[in-house]
């Protein structure tokens, strides 16, 4: 498996090199590459190119995942919850525009950097989540994507150490990734947060992450990444599942929903609510989301419903919900976990 991963990393690196070549296609004089600030990392330049404001926001993220990380079009489509054909068309249009309009390949000068950073944060975060739980395939995660996201977050933090959201993104990745070693059991089976051996969590990452979150929160009104990092920090600070401060987590999700209204955030809030106020309250919140078109193919909505129904001892409905979730997920480790839960309902 290690060898396969090495090949995989090699393949992805090739993609980045090819992408760079593609960006200067036919003209070596494609634009001055600034050498004044010393952020000469190719990946960073490429990510700023993909996240150029002349490209639509959704396209920026998709393009970066495709060009920078070598995700297949199918994987990118999955991350966006759209059809593969639609994603392929969007990526083709974007690549054409980069070449024809000469979108420059460089890290922006300091003066423009602040305005360009949000898109980059979004890309690195999506890159991380795609690696943390692979949209398709036999492995729960793709470690090379996770590490690439972590590298990029660190690089960006070195670039902008005073930006709270940049700091928080690094914290969020560190805190979430600190659980890497405990998410899969000895037999390769998925372990939910509730069942993880927390002594296996990576202590150094947690300490660094918590310090960074603290730093961000002190900077004032928290943005979306600071709120997400704060939620991760609440989990990291509980030495047992039973000690989790769910009321605090729901409060943070309320703020997050304000800062970032998204059905996926609402779903996570409903799950937290089911632990803070009980499964029937959680279930009611989840059912309100069933009409969201963006969530109609999202396995976690059905899985969360199944979990609430199981806790309410409505086993027949729970089984149906878990079966729906198992049908929707294309990650084999997650699918096996859902099947296990179905078999345990009897």
């Amino acid at each position: 498996m290690a060898r396969r991963r090495a090949i995989d990393v090699g393949r992805r690196r090739d993609v980045a090199v090819k992408s760079q070549r593609f960006l200067v296609t036919g003209d070596v004089d494609a634009g001055p590459i600034t050498a004044d600030d010393g952020f000469e990392d190719d990946r960073l330049r490429l990510i700023f190119t993909c996240c150029h404001p002349s490209l639509a926001a959704d396209t920026q993220v998709a393009l970066a995942l495709r060009m920078l990380c070598g995700l297949s079009t199918a994987e990118v489509a999955k991350a966006f919850l759209v059809k593969e054909s639609a994603m392929a068309a969007r990526l083709t249009r974007a690549k054409k525009k980069i070449v024809l309009a000469r979108i420059p390949y460089r890290v922006p000068a300091r003066a423009e950097l602040r305005g360009r950073i949000d898109a980059v944060l979004l890309v690195i975060h999506l890159l991380f989540t795609t690696g943390h739980t692979a949209p398709v395939g036999k492995n729960l995660s793709q470690v090379d994507l996770v590490e690439r996201a972590l590298d990029l977050a660190r690089m960006l933090h070195n670039l902008l150490p005073d930006d709270a959201e940049v700091t928080s993104l690094l914290a969020l990745i560190l805190l979430t990734d600190s659980r890497r070693g405990s998410r899969v059991g000895s037999g390769g089976e998925f372990r939910a947060l509730a069942d993880q051996d927390r002594s296996k969590w990576h202590r150094d990452s947690i300490d660094e992450g918590l310090a960074l979150v603290g730093e961000s929160i002190r900077r004032g009104r928290p943005g979306r990444f600071t709120l997400m990092a704060a939620i991760a920090a609440v989990h990291s600070s509980a030495s047992h599942w039973d000690e989790t401060d769910w009321t605090e987590i729901v409060g943070l999700y309320d703020l997050l929903l304000d800062a970032w209204p998204s059905p996926v955030v609402a779903l996570n809030r409903a799950v937290a609510l089911s632990f803070a106020e009980g499964p029937s309250v959680g279930l009611a919140a989840l059912e309100e989301l069933s009409a969201e078109p963006q969530l109609s193919t999202y396995p976690y909505l059905a899985a969360a419903r199944g979990d609430c129904l199981e806790r309410l001892e409505r086993f027949t409905e729970a089984r149906e919900a878990f079966e729906e979730a198992a049908l929707l997920t294309e990650n084999h480790v997650e699918r096996d976990f859902l099947r296990l839960r179905i078999s345990q309902l009897n």
């Binding site: 494609a30 002349s54 000469r102």
Partner: peptide
């Protein structure tokens, strides 16, 4: 212009 940023 050298590139889109310069033109913009």
């Amino acid at each position: 212009a050298a590139d889109l940023d310069a033109a913009t």
